[in-house]
Nucleic acid binder design. Structure first.
Length: 402
DNA sequence: TCTGGGGTCCTAGGACCC
DNA sequence: TCTGGGGTCCTAGGACCC
């Protein structure tokens, strides 16, 4: 039986979702005009999170600074994001996809793979995918692209063909015709650096890459990556659709300042802030971390980083923060202006720390109590937000159906 | 024009052990 | 005194994804 995989991708997800919300409030459809979703539009440092198709046609791209996009298109419509709403849209989208096949892998907030081998045949796959896409549009109000292929790679490549609101196939027999003429950059896992290396060697298309000998490719990108690129360029991929969500391997948070900071007090405040976020997140998932890392980014975007291993895994904010502070002292001269600070933890386990009361820092109990109060405050704030959100939704329903 | 925030995986070199 | 080879762990850094 042939494998049939669908990759379903929401078209300009955050922008489409924002458009649906705004239309419910009576605004025109921002998908039809040059528009973008960004962080705080007033912050000169914010970048574009999602762009409409008309905006993309003008050359506006995701991850571009908002100020730059405004120069390209002064009448650009800029809207802020709404994470609660995005989560709701994502859940609705995933649940429709799941109703087509239980073998579903969520790849990101707006993308998933489903294994349809049991549910359809190569002959009716396009019809089934079209039904799925129509159902999402009719029920949720936004469009998706569906890519169909014999493996995840081909399905994902196919969903990236013409957008929006399209179904494309990329069967193995179509690889030469549909995939090989594309530039190497269009292949999954080929980013800017790899593209540069390949084109410098005269490899411009996926087809050329597919036919390049393994020895030459290994010299260019390393043995392991070469093997993967070679397989992928030839349309081969045997990775399964993973239905289990993998546990996080690391948790991190970072803050970019509105201007570059040199005052150690400002840097420390930011470090404290991100330490609270990271430690709270790992406690919520009942993790403890054995490695703490921190980095600072200077205004020229160079990064200095440090990481350190702990004797015992911890979830205590103060312990994590103190390690980060110590490392900051080691990497920063105290003078060079800093643009961004970040803090992360890894080597996560669910083991509880071995209690060695004799050797334990007597302050730890105090720190833990501080964390408990912090978590409680966060939980209360979250509850209040949820309540307000539900109330708002109910009010909307009432006005819809008087 | 001036670049966010959150992740994963890989490689290379050094330390240390047998 | 100087030498080997393999394995594992750690840190630093880089590339990619959305």
């Amino acid at each position: 039986m042939p494998r049939i995989i669908f990759h379903i991708d929401v078209n300009s997800a955050f922008l489409s979702w924002t458009a649906v919300k705004l239309m419910r409030e009576g605004y025109p459809d921002i998908r039809l005009v040059p528009s973008v979703v960004s962080g705080d539009p007033n912050d000169r440092r914010s970048i574009i999170t999602a762009a409409s198709i008309p905006a993309k046609k003008l050359g506006i791209r995701t991850a571009q600074p908002v100020s730059m996009a405004l120069r390209t298109c002064p009448q650009l419509v800029i809207v802020g994001g709404d994470w609660g709403w995005y989560k709701e849209c994502s859940e609705g989208f995933i649940s429709i996809c799941r109703s087509y096949s239980p073998v579903l892998q969520q790849f990101s907030i707006d993308e998933c793979f489903i294994d349809m081998s049991q549910q359809c045949t190569p002959e009716n796959a396009v019809a089934v995918a079209t039904r799925l896409k129509e159902q999402v549009r009719e029920t949720l109000g936004f469009t998706v692209n569906v890519g169909i292929g014999a493996n995840k790679l081909l399905a994902k490549m196919a969903s990236d063909f013409e957008k929006p609101d399209k179904v494309h196939t990329l069967w193995e027999s179509e690889v030469k015709e549909k995939m090989w003429p594309l530039g190497v950059r269009d292949l999954l896992w080929v980013g800017k650096k790899t593209e540069e290396r390949l084109t410098a060697y005269g490899i411009n298309t996926i087809g050329q890459l597919a036919q390049l000998g393994m020895e030459s490719l290994s010299v260019l990108v390393g043995k392991k990556f070469a093997r993967q690129l070679h397989e992928n360029a030839n349309g081969r991929d045997n990775s399964p659709v993973e239905t289990e969500r993998a546990e996080a391997k690391s948790v991190s948070a970072e803050r970019t300042f509105s201007r570059d900071y040199t005052d150690p007090k400002d840097i420390d405040r930011a470090l404290f802030h991100v330490a609270c976020i990271v430690a709270h997140r790992i406690r919520r998932h009942d993790f403890r971390a054995s490695t703490v890392s921190m980095f600072i980014k200077y205004k020229d975007f160079t990064v200095a980083q440090k990481q350190t291993s702990l004797d015992q895994p911890t979830d205590v904010t103060a312990v994590i923060l103190n390690e980060a502070r110590r490392m900051l002292g080691e990497v920063w001269d105290g003078i060079t202006p800093i643009r961004q600070v970040g803090l992360g933890v890894s080597k996560l386990t669910h083991e509880s720390a071995i209690q060695m009361s004799l050797f334990e820092d007597p302050k730890l109990e105090y720190y833990r109590e501080w964390d408990r109060q912090y978590d409680e405050k966060k939980a209360k704030a979250e509850d209040a937000r949820m309540l307000a959100y539900e109330r708002k939704k109910n009010d909307e329903k009432k006005t819809e159906t008087p």
